[in-house]
């Protein structure tokens, strides 16, 4: 039994974990051997890296603001009201 031979399920979990911490040597070796032979898990790895890159830019892109709803006029008025009353010396909050 080769303890460094991992199946796709195990490799996907470890590839994900490798994005969050440094894995032990035998796992890194195991991943490398597996990815060399398995094109699906190689794709999966690339997809996770893409996902990370996309998430990092996602909130900075103006597009993410465009697709969100904006504050309703009611909400805005309520906030202004709260703020102005607060200014008047209402410090009960």
């Amino acid at each position: 039994m080769h303890h460094w031979m991992f199946n796709c399920r195990e490799v996907t979990r470890m590839v994900s974990e490798s994005l969050d911490r440094r894995l032990p040597l035998h796992q890194r070796m195991g991943i490398r051997v597996h990815l060399f032979m398995c094109k699906f898990c190689s794709r999966y790895r690339k997809q996770l890296l893409l996902l990370r890159a996309v998430m990092q830019r996602y909130t900075e892109s103006d597009g993410s603001v465009d697709i969100s709803e904006s504050l309703s006029p009611t909400a805005k008025n309520r906030m202004k009201h709260v703020l102005s009353h607060h200014e008047d010396g209402d410090h009960r909050h």
Partner: peptide, 22 residues
């Protein structure tokens, strides 16, 4: 056996190009 049931497809992996699309 721990193999993919539906194997991942090939993606176009350009984050910049993707994010330009609403």
């Amino acid at each position: 056996k721990g193999h993919w049931k539906k194997s991942p497809s090939k993606w176009d992996t350009n984050p910049k190009k993707l994010l330009e699309q609403k």
